[in-house]
């Protein structure tokens, strides 16, 4: 009986010890960094895969598409854009490009449009299917002509968290030129609603939802994103999420 009690308490201690030991290791910078190397491995294996996200039919579209982001921008700039129906909006393209430019919304809408019915996979675990219509990012990049040594495309957005930190995201050139990476203007046949990222939202169906930045104001082509904010290449990346979000 004593032995069974000893065994039972050993097992209970082993189980109970799991979370505190794990938490202590999690707070150890060296171990935390070691765990993060797995993300780099995923990026090396899958990061530039040419695989296409699965296309669905109209019948598969989610009746309700969740909103799970920073709040819709409330800045005076965004209010003014909203007030005139985004007629004064222009997407800025800057950085390491031959031709920096501003593309008005009407011109984006006049370019060749792609519609994709794809699944949006949130890192939290939920997913939703929507029909996104817009301009493939590569068509826009070809207009601006990135320099040969350009490595990343950074998306600067109009939303901010409660600390005032703006949202931003980044893709490498292969991901940016992926045929399904889209600057979406419409969701399910209507202009994107303000809370879904109006007027222009990035859509990256081959990666988790936090890559699909809402309220894109500017596209910046860069050689490195180390100097931006937390240096990890995105708002959520700066908070510990993997830069390559395909897993």
């Amino acid at each position: 009986m004593k032995r069974r009690l000893f065994l039972a308490s050993s097992i209970a201690a082993a189980l109970g010890g799991c979370a505190p030991i794990g938490t202590a290791l999690n707070d150890n910078p060296g171990f935390h960094h070691l765990l993060g190397l797995e993300g780099a491995l995923d990026a090396a294996i899958l990061g530039n895969s040419a695989g296409l996200a699965r296309q669905y039919s109209v019948a598969d579209i989610s009746p309700h598409f969740p909103i799970d982001s920073l709040p819709t921008p409330t800045s005076s700039t965004y209010e003014a854009l909203l007030a005139n129906g985004f007629r004064s909006y222009a997407l800025a393209i800057s950085g390491a490009v031959e031709r920096p430019m501003r593309i008005p919304l009407a011109r984006l809408a006049g370019m060749a449009q792609q519609t994709q019915i794809t699944r949006h996979d949130c890192v939290e675990g939920w997913s939703a299917i929507g029909a996104w219509t817009g301009v493939p990012l590569r068509d826009v990049l070809r207009l601006a002509m990135p320099h040969r040594d350009a490595r990343y495309v950074v998306f600067r957005c109009m939303d901010r968290d409660d600390q005032g930190t703006p949202y931003y995201e980044s893709l490498d050139m292969a991901q940016a030129y992926h045929p399904q990476t889209l600057l979406a203007l419409q969701l399910n046949g209507r202009p994107i609603r303000p809370d879904h990222g109006a007027p222009v939202r990035l859509r990256v169906p081959t990666q988790l939802g936090y890559k699909s930045a809402k309220w894109v104001a500017e596209i910046q082509v860069v050689g490195s994103f180390a100097h931006l904010y937390g240096g990890k290449g995105g708002y959520w990346e700066d908070q510990g999420y993997e830069w390559y979000a395909g897993i």
Binding site: A19, G22, N26, L35, G36, E38, G240, E242, I247
Partner: peptide
């Protein structure tokens, strides 16, 4: 509850790091 998870506090990003590693 916290005593069942790694890390004990709620942190999806770090939970994913542990899980995928």
């Amino acid at each position: 509850p916290g005593w069942l998870t790694i890390p004990a506090y709620q942190d999806l990003a770090d939970g994913r790091r542990w899980h995928l590693f």
